[in-house]
Simulated scan of single mutants.
Amino acid sequence: MSNSTLGAPATGGPALSVVLVHGAFVDGSGWQKVYDELVDRGFEVLVGQHSTASLEGDVATVERLIAAASHPVFLVGHSYGGAIITEAGNHPRVRALAYIAAFVPDAGESVAALNEAPEGPGETKAPLRPPQDGYLLVDPARFPEAFAADVEPATTRFLAAAQLPWAIAAAVAPLTRAAWQTKPSFYLVASADRMIPPTAQRRMAQRAGAKITEIDSSHAVMMSHPQEVAAFIAAAASTVTSTEGGDEQ
């Protein structure tokens, strides 16, 4: 089952539709403030709700949103959502990709493989509990600090309690094609991230040839800095439309 939230663009607004793709452990509601900012800027915005039970199923959910969009698509992925958009971004309607503190796999590579790279000095990775029935969760006691240290405590407590279990099958699934090989990409590094080490973010972004921007933020950058994230997306989308032009399907 998949759902989407659709914001109608203003007349004469941007000629790209934005598709926002969430990562593991949370759902599409984490994008709400970014969604509001982008809609106010005139974008059509679609927000995916995928199960994180399989990479193939999550990609299919996003591909349905791409097909439903009114304009060519700018795909935006957070965390594990970066793997989803890297695969789904091969859709012909996708013009570019934006990674928000996200994994950027290559063809034949999985998120799990990327996560095996050592972290830099003073950095940490996600404090995961041992797998249970094929699914992963972040240790709830450590979730607030690890995932969203700069988000209000009441929200982080709820996020920790309401985690969406992430299937190991999705984490270990290799990609078949990497859209960043042929399409423009942009990366917003969260320099205070304690889930995906910032050095790993920079390394993946550089390998993909992405235009890199940095922000002093936790992993939950779309929640703690929604105005800045929306501005990053809007600026990147503007670059794409000014370079390619048109509203062809």
Score class of each variant (00 low, 15 high):
Ser17Gly: 14
Ser17Val: 11
Ser17Met: 10
Val18Asp: 08
Val19Met: 12
Val19Cys: 12
Val19Tyr: 10
Leu20Trp: 03
Leu20Gln: 06
Val21Asp: 01
Val21Thr: 15
Val21Glu: 07
His22Cys: 11
His22Met: 07
His22Tyr: 04
Gly23Cys: 09
Gly23Thr: 05
Gly23Ser: 13
Gly23Phe: 12
Ala24Cys: 09
Ala24Leu: 01
Phe25Gln: 01
Phe25Arg: 00
Phe25Pro: 02
Val26Asp: 00
Val26Phe: 05
Asp27Met: 03
Gly28Met: 06
Gly28Trp: 04
Gly28Cys: 06
Ser29Met: 08
Ser29Leu: 12
Ser29Ile: 12
Ser29Glu: 12
Ser29Tyr: 07
Trp31Cys: 03
Trp31His: 02
Gln32Lys: 15
Gln32Trp: 13
Lys33Cys: 02
Val34Ile: 09
Val34Leu: 08
Val34Gly: 06
Tyr35Leu: 14
Tyr35His: 15
Tyr35Glu: 15
Asp36Ala: 15
Asp36Val: 11
Glu37Leu: 02
Glu37Val: 06
Glu37Asn: 13
Glu37Cys: 08
Leu38Ser: 02
Leu38Ala: 05
Leu38Met: 06
Arg41Cys: 03
Arg41Thr: 03
Arg41Ile: 05
Arg41Ala: 15
Arg41Ser: 13
Gly42Val: 12
Phe43Gln: 04
Phe43Pro: 02
Glu44Ser: 06
Glu44Leu: 07
Glu44Met: 04
Glu44Ala: 11
Val45Glu: 05
Val45Ala: 10
Leu46Met: 13
Leu46His: 15
Val47Tyr: 08
Gly48Thr: 15
Gly48Val: 13
Gly48Ile: 02
Gln49Glu: 14
Gln49Arg: 12
Gln49Pro: 00
Gln49Gly: 07
His50Pro: 07
Ser51His: 01
Thr52Tyr: 04
Thr52Arg: 08
Thr52Ile: 09
Thr52Ala: 12
Ala53Asn: 14
Ala53Trp: 08
Ser54Cys: 05
Ser54Leu: 10
Leu55Cys: 08
Leu55Gly: 08
Glu56Ala: 15
Gly57Ala: 04
Asp58Asn: 10
Val59Lys: 06
Ala60Pro: 03
Thr61Tyr: 02
Thr61Asp: 15
Glu63Ser: 03
Glu63Ala: 01
Glu63Val: 02
Glu63Ile: 00
Leu65Val: 05
Ile66Trp: 12
Ile66Ala: 11
Ile66His: 10
Ala68Ile: 04
Ala68Met: 03
Ala69Tyr: 11
Ser70Trp: 01
Ser70Asn: 14
Ser70Asp: 14
Pro72Thr: 00
Val73Trp: 09
Val73Arg: 08
Val73Phe: 08
Leu75Met: 02
Leu75Phe: 04
Leu75Asn: 04
Val76Glu: 10
Val76Gly: 03
Val76Lys: 06
Val76Gln: 05
Val76Ala: 06
Gly77Ile: 06
Gly77Ala: 11
Gly77Phe: 11
Gly77Leu: 12
Gly77Tyr: 11
His78Gln: 15
His78Leu: 14
His78Asp: 10
Ser79His: 07
Tyr80Cys: 02
Tyr80Gln: 04
Gly81Lys: 06
